[in-house]
Every structure is written in C-alpha cells, then in structure tokens.
Design a protein around this nucleic acid. Structure first.
Lengths: 163, 163
DNA sequence: CTCATATGCTTGAGAGTTCAAGTAAGGTGG
DNA sequence: CCACCTTACTTGAACTCTCAAGCATATGAG
C-alpha cells in the first residue's frame, strides 16, 4: 500500500468531468423521455428490446442478464414488474428446472413498437444530432475500447462471474 | 404527428450501444468502488468534492444542485443523509431566510481525503488506462459538445429552469 | 400595505437497484 | 445413493432517486 496517488492532471480532469457529465445527462434524458411518454424506465425498455431481438422472442433469465450487463437480482425484480403489466411472461424450462425463460408477449411487443419511435428521436436529439460522422466513429472506437477490457476479465463487473 | 421515424443505421446502433454500455459500466464500477471502500455512492462523493472546492467550503443548496446537474430534491435528500453522518452541516442564511448553506465539515473533509486516492485509481482503471492521449482529447471534445447543447437550453434538464 | 406570484428548499410516497440470503435443481466424488 | 458444491433464480430489506406537493420567505403590482 505504499502508493503515491497519481492525481488527474488538468486535461484528465476535464475529460473525466465531461465524460461523466455527458453520460449522466444522456442517461437521464432518455430515462425521463421513456418514463414520461411510455411509462417505463430505460432499463425496462432495454429488456423488451433484447427479448424482441431474440429467437422466438424469448431468452433464459441468465442470458438476458448477461446481454444487458445486469445483475440477476435486478433483472428478476424488473421482469416481475413487466410480468404484472403483461408485457413479459415467464415459462419454466423442461430440460433444466432451475431455468426460467422470459418471453415477450404480444402486448409487450405492441408497447415496444409504440415506444420505439419516440425513443429513437430522443436518442438523436441527445447524441447524434450533436456530432458529425467522424465524431461518431471516434466515440464508437473509444467506448468499445472501454467495454472490451470489461469483457476481457477486468475487475468487478455486475452480474458476471469471472471465468 | 405524421412523422416517419428515422431509425438508427448499423453504425449508429453500434455507436449507441457502445456509448450506453461504456457509460453504464464506468458509472457502476465507480459507484461500487466508492460504496465498497468508502461507504458512499458516487453522488455523495461528488457533493463532497464540490463543497471542498468552494470558497469557505460552503455553497447554497441551489448552487450546489446546479453545479452537480442534480435536482434540488435529490440534493436535499442526499445532504440530509450526509448531515446524519456528520460530513456536511447546514447553515441558515441571514440575508435571505429561504436559503440554506451546505458546509463541508472537518470530518467530511477527512473522509473525502481518505476516499479520493482509491477513487482516482478506479477512474484510471476504468477509463484513462484504456485510452491513449489522442483518444482522451477526442472524448473530451465529443462529451463537451453533448454537454454544451444542454447548457444552451436544450429540452428537459433536471433541476434547472430555462432562462 | 396587501394580495398574488415566484423562489428556495423540504417532505412523503412510490419505484428501482443493490446486497446478502435463501430456495431449488443439476452435477460429482466417494 | 448421499453428501457436497455449483448453478439459476428469487426474495427481503435498506437505500437512493423521482415526482408531486407542501412550507416559508421574498418580490412586485395595485
């Protein structure tokens, strides 16, 4: 523990605050838009999207959690709420009785279809309308680099076990 | 509204998911690190930092909220908790009795000083160690562009009034 | 001066997230 | 076939955040 802390220099400070600020801002804008216009938080929207893209529109809870980088606990609570609303249904798995499938219902698909246009519009306003194509390319590259480390087994990702 | 939705193309999809993924990942890593090592969420840490940088280590609640891009409600709840821990103290304002000052206590400063090195280390691991200086420069530019629109009076920022 | 409105902040209820336990089922070595 | 560990998922309590009201104090119009 005999470290001397390497503080952030001015450029790093600026970068850090800009990144955190932009992250927070975009997240909150999206969350607010979805809550206001479609009555769901962004996390729930993301669940519906993932299910809609899956074969048969169903995924095992653990797969779904992994795809969303979400903890199993969070997903379990969320799917419970989505089930109450009739947007998602759970089905037991015959082959492995521990597993449960999350299935997007017709009603869930309808709700998602209704929510999507407004969401996309909000995404454009929060991000893409503000950046030129070159910036978008760079942002993708940078964020991918950040994400790759996590997948490569960095410390402390939620809902994942190292392996 | 007779709009035809302009969906995201493949590049935009990738950019969007990378950005959201990286934002979420970094936020959660930082939150977890601070919670684990210093027993506070990142939002509370940010409050302590802002106060520590202010003259006399004190700010009016509304100023503090504005600097943090936080709603007044959130800040009020948070400061209540920080007060219970003795890290922050509230003081009434003689000139305007509606105002209350949030003041960083000695104990709060000590806690912040103890938390900071681990936090900075986590920031490096989550972000700066993964990027070269040119990428950091680009990230700053991009995030600043995203933030500037909000300050320039975009729709729906939390805890702010337009004007 | 007085009433209406705006401002600064707080409060309470409802919701989502987290962490730590807890249940149940699958797999394995003896 | 029986303990034992792992895997898949759920549950409950504590905590934070949000939204909508709710005070109390300025401020301005008449």
């Amino acid at each position: 523990m005999g470290y001397v802390t390497r503080w952030l220099d001015d450029d790093e400070q600026r970068a850090w605050r800009a990144f955190m600020g932009a992250s927070q801002l975009v997240q909150e804008e999206l969350d607010r838009q979805l809550q206001r216009d479609s009555g769901m938080p962004h996390a729930y929207y993301a669940i519906l999207v993932k299910l809609s893209e899956a074969p048969e529109r169903m995924l095992r809870m653990s797969e779904l959690a992994a795809e969303l980088s979400s903890s199993q606990s969070r997903l379990s609570h969320a799917v419970a709420r989505l089930e109450e609303r009739g947007w998602v249904r759970r089905e037991p798995c015959a082959a492995d009785k521990r597993v449960s499938w999350a299935v997007l219902t017709e009603r869930g698909l309808t709700v998602l279809a209704a929510a999507a246009p407004g969401h996309v519009e909000a995404v454009r306003q929060s991000l893409f309308d503000l950046l030129d194509p070159e910036q978008v390319r760079r942002l993708t590259e940078i964020c991918t680099a950040v994400l790759d480390r996590a997948k490569a087994g960095g410390a402390g990702e939620p809902g994942r076990r190292k392996g």
